[in-house]
């Protein structure tokens, strides 16, 4: 691992008077699996959309492998792939057609595409459904074919927004293993998730965003030592940092009352 795959400098997004994302500054190193956490409405998806060229920042810059995505979008997009939380794909394409379309855009050699596509379809148990129209897929299957489409061109940086939502346990495990393997081989992954166990088990580093600000950034060990609670889980740290502990205490109280 050397050099930064993602460099965020003073990145901000404002909607009218509302600051959705406030002056973010951080880097993700090449080969790193980075977990991006935060409560609902904290600014995770907005940040990912700015990093992938889907949403124009109000200020600041985002670089992918040293290329500013808003100044040189095509060059930057050649390096990235994105899997959104809602896999809205082309309903009238088959899974295979969709992968062919992505491969054509990235101008992959036929042999390389076929080998990679078949490998991915096999990993996600989609080989038998590859000839069916995407409109007949379940949410999980759409999510899986979106992941296959993202990985088929072997991107340098992969952005995933809630990738495990809708996946069956086997596919979720396959995805986790695959991501770890790909990152070990040099790919960078930027994942937003609410499932803190995933972040705790898989991620090299974690960033927590709240109200558009990064409130914690580092490895699990760094976060624990910064909070002075080495024995606590990521969930405890997250709830403490994001103010969710009050709600948790209330739930415990209600549950205790109910038990009495």
């Amino acid at each position: 691992m050397s050099g930064s795959a993602i460099k965020i400098t003073n990145l901000a997004k404002t909607y009218g008077k509302h600051d959705a994302v406030k002056q973010l500054n951080f880097e993700v190193q090449k080969g790193e699996l980075f977990g991006f956490l935060g409560p609902n409405g904290a600014g995770k998806t907005t940040t990912i959309k700015m990093l992938t060229g889907l949403l124009e920042p109000s200020s600041g810059s985002a670089e992918i492998n040293g290329i500013n995505i808003w100044q040189h979008p095509i060059d930057a997009k050649k390096k990235i792939a994105y899997v959104p939380d809602q896999p809205n794909l082309y309903p009238k394409l088959t899974g295979w057609d969709y992968l062919e379309f992505v491969a054509s855009v990235f101008q992959l050699p036929k042999d390389r595409f076929q080998a990679k596509a078949e490998e991915l379809l096999s990993i996600f148990n989609l080989s038998n459904q590859a000839s069916d129209l995407i409109e007949s897929y379940s949410h999980g299957m759409k999510q899986k074919i979106a992941i296959c489409g993202a990985l088929v061109h072997e991107p340098a940086v992969l952005f995933l927004d809630e990738p495990t939502v809708g996946l069956d346990p086997k596919s979720a495990r396959s995805l986790k293993n695959l991501l770890r393997k790909l990152c070990d081989e040099g790919m960078t992954a930027f994942i937003s998730t609410h499932i803190l166990e995933i972040a705790e088990q898989m991620c090299d580093r974690v960033g927590i965003i709240l109200d558009g600000n990064i409130i914690a950034l580092g490895t699990m060990e760094e976060l624990k030592s910064a909070e002075g609670k080495a024995d606590q889980s990521l969930e405890d740290i997250f709830l403490e940092l994001t103010g969710g502990e009050d709600e948790q205490a209330l739930i415990n109280e209600i549950t205790d009352d109910g038990d009495k």
């Binding site: 855009v105 101008q107 080989s127 590859a130």
Partner: peptide
């Protein structure tokens, strides 16, 4: 459902991106 094994998926037909957009 036609049960298609991974090895029997149709041979890929890749095109120039402009053609691929039109084909889609």
């Amino acid at each position: 459902k036609k049960k298609i094994s991974a090895s029997k998926l149709k041979a890929p037909t890749l095109h120039h991106p402009i053609i691929a957009v039109g084909k889609k």
